[in-house]
Design a protein around this nucleic acid. Sequence first.
DNA 1: CGCCTATACGAAATCGGCTTCGTGTCAATA
DNA 2: TATTGACACGAAGCCGATTTCGTATAGGCG
Lengths: 339, 339
Amino acid sequence: MKKKITLKHIAKELDVSISTVSKALKNSEEIGRDTKEKIQAIAKLYNYRPNNIAISLKNKRTKNIGVIIPDIVHHFFTTVFRGIEKYANEKGYNVIVCVSDESFDKEVINMEMLANGSIDGFIMALSAETQMKNDFNHLKEVTEQGIPLVLFDRITDDVICDKVIINDEEAAYNAVKKLIESGKKRIALFTTENYLGVSSKRADGYFRALKDHKLETDENLVLELPFQFEKEDKSEAFFERYSFDAVLCVNEIFAIRAMRTAQRMGIKIPQELAIIGFTDGILSKLSSPSLTAVAQHGNRMGEIAAQMLIEKVESDQERESFRTEIIEATIIERESTIH
Amino acid sequence: MKKKITLKHIAKELDVSISTVSKALKNSEEIGRDTKEKIQAIAKLYNYRPNNIAISLKNKRTKNIGVIIPDIVHHFFTTVFRGIEKYANEKGYNVIVCVSDESFDKEVINMEMLANGSIDGFIMALSAETQMKNDFNHLKEVTEQGIPLVLFDRITDDVICDKVIINDEEAAYNAVKKLIESGKKRIALFTTENYLGVSSKRADGYFRALKDHKLETDENLVLELPFQFEKEDKSEAFFERYSFDAVLCVNEIFAIRAMRTAQRMGIKIPQELAIIGFTDGILSKLSSPSLTAVAQHGNRMGEIAAQMLIEKVESDQERESFRTEIIEATIIERESTIH
DNA sequence: CGCCTATACGAAATCGGCTTCGTGTCAATA
DNA sequence: TATTGACACGAAGCCGATTTCGTATAGGCG
């Protein structure tokens, strides 16, 4: 086993000092021509690479970014991560991922693990539990320590930092508008239990669109579904009890489940029921019929988040200015709506 | 902005030496009762945490694991990652993820970025390009440096290290057997272009099952599909040209695409065409009809990989013993097959 | 021949924490 | 009273690389 070699090894081998080796490898003018060449040759021979950890300690810069997300299996978060990783890598940064699993405690633990020097900054989306508890002290502590933080998608106004979101309210509005313009009159909303910021914004857009188009809003047409997969009893009963000709779903899974339930009950899509879901993932593309979806452009979101973070990390000036970048969601029309 | 405080700060504040502070915080017997209490109080007050980087440098242990996967958007890799992250986190390790994007060069660059002290060991699945080129020098260099490496799923015999795989050949065999037992006679195989180790093993199982059950093997019934999404011309033509009553797909996407094409052509599933796909992901669960799938148990795979790696990382003994763990794939029966 | 300066390199501090080895003080004991 | 030892703490080296500052040697010049 080849041991990892250090400046010290090279120095000893050539009987020069460590500083000379260090300078020679940086091609410093200070070092004589042939000494430099000898040192560089040996370094190459041994395939010398400086130790990242030592450099991190010296520079107080790790070139690592910490990403904390509620879930990695969800397509949206995956695409955001992809965007982050791509941009970060181009800039020479590595990405450390922690999954909070929608748990407040895990989120806190993960942040603490990383906040002690392991990373230069955080990119994160809040866990559901954190949003419920409304407790953001772990975030505040981190920002107070001067560690840059970028929140995306699941954000909060209580923490002052850079943010990236989509225009949820408007996107929902436009989706509903599109349904109305295609002739639909009774439009349902399938949403999560309401602590998630994004869901409530989407609901706002939904209601505003109905009002603007003089359609009555019926609280009965709003179905709150649990996070986890379950028997689809609840939604089946909902289909039986209420009549509606279109549905907006706050995520892809809900949309697919709505579609399956409708199909099982012999409802024709999109003629009898049009469906639009948030998140334009593989499910939407590959279901049959394929799903019209609100694309959140996770990749771009991730790239922008990474860009904002790295900008902050690399600027030594401490002017505290924060911005919120809003990404325009776009509707991808497919077979589940009439157009 | 609160500056990050160090042992030095505490030492100066209490007018003791750094070593005293260090020992006091570790509750060393060496330090007097009240000195200890004073130091611990101040440390708590300032919320002191030791700097991970400094500890890493000292211990030559980062408590970071490097994970390199070809793609994060694919469900299988996501679940493996989930398993790794979970186990690693429990053991106090962080996970640095790099995506090779199926590219040899990126894989090499990523490894080099991480191999200089940033991580204690690697877990990875080879990129398609690496498997094609059959060039594993970057892996060998890493293992020669004594950095533990665990390969999963996409492995190679050319590198000596720990490995985790599923019984691909057998799983394919069993899937085909199940199709045959349900009365199917002409079974097609949708596979990737053949450099990927796993695909060829699955093909082996497919052929062996046909032979064992005295069904003729028809090379025409094997369709090689490209990685990327494309117009589905190729498979549509395939459906028109050849007749078959079942298909085994080496991944989920191929299975869903096969199903969509069949549906568009009015073929009834599973009566006229039964489908089994590898990877039991969301697509399989939520398609309609739902897909019978070979579950690869990515989560367990990830957990086991992480366990093997951490075991190696933490054992100081250098007895070089490597093992290959085989995970039993299981078939999850759903609506796309008859049972 | 003596002085000055440029050249080429080395010593040492630093990053933050850990750890080994001293050492000064005080009390107990011979 | 002198010796021993326990106790409580400090000095310093180390991990690996960078960087500032200092200095020996050489040559050039008056």
